[in-house]
Computed example of a mutant assay.
Amino acid sequence: MAEPTATGLVHNLDTDPNCLKQRESWRSNVTKTDDGHYRYALKDGQSNFSLRPSMTMIPEGGIAVVQYRGNNARAESDYPSDCTILSDNGWLLVVKALKNSICAIRYYSGYVELDHVTVLPDETEYRRMRDGYKLPAGFDGDTMPLMGGGRAKRHRLAARLRRSDWVVAA
């Protein structure tokens, strides 16, 4: 049986794909967790808090895929003219930048802990990543391309591929 041919590389533009650096946030309490991530929660006396999911600017038309843990954290775009939420299933948030933006996300309750972030230049790259890996429900920490813009630790698939970017098979 022949090996599948590569149709290209998927490159993560985020410089901290494992979310081990504190993100910019507003009106929030931030604490470092035991696993090295950060918990962002509503500050006392505030009605909402905002969080920048990516360390980098998301290009116009770009997609940010954010794996997170949360508790009653209802998300919406902080600046709807800058970005829009394409989907949020309670553990995976997909945001599209409508112009070059930080794509801040507003939360009204609960807390959020970011696990992984992938920033892609456009929807075509997002579909290539999603469809190339035959992942109908989205991504998780073992299937998101984490090796692009930053020096993230290798996970199972990235180590197996021995690449800094992921190869999408036909």
Rank of each mutant, 00 (worst) to 15 (best):
M1H: 12
A6Y: 09
G8E: 04
L9Y: 13
L9E: 12
T15R: 05
D16A: 05
N18A: 11
N18D: 12
L20A: 11
K21C: 04
K21I: 00
W26C: 11
R27G: 07
V30L: 11
K32G: 05
D35A: 11
D35C: 05
H37Y: 04
R39G: 07
A41W: 07
L42G: 10
N48E: 10
S50C: 12
L51C: 05
L51A: 06
M55W: 00
M55R: 08
T56Y: 02
M57K: 03
I58H: 02
P59S: 00
P59E: 02
G62E: 05
G62C: 02
A64T: 04
V65K: 02
V65W: 02
V65Q: 04
V66P: 02
V66H: 02
R69N: 06
G70I: 05
A73E: 13
A75C: 15
E76P: 06
S81M: 06
D82I: 01
I85K: 13
S87A: 13
S87C: 05
S87T: 11
D88M: 08
L93D: 13
L93Q: 14
L93W: 11
A97M: 03
A97V: 09
K99T: 12
K99R: 14
N100R: 10
S101Q: 15
I102V: 01
C103A: 15
R106E: 15
G110V: 12
Y111K: 00
V112Q: 00
E113H: 11
V117P: 02
V119E: 00
L120Q: 06
L120S: 02
P121L: 00
E123G: 10
R128Q: 06
M129D: 00
D131N: 06
G132M: 01
G132E: 00
P136V: 07
A137K: 08
F139L: 05
F139A: 02
D142L: 11
D142I: 06
P145H: 03
L146H: 04
M147T: 08
M147R: 11
G148Q: 03
G149V: 01
R154H: 12
H155G: 07
H155L: 03
R156Q: 14
R156P: 09
L157V: 15
L161S: 13
R162G: 15
R163D: 08
D165T: 07
D165R: 00
W166R: 12
A169E: 14
A169F: 11
A170R: 12
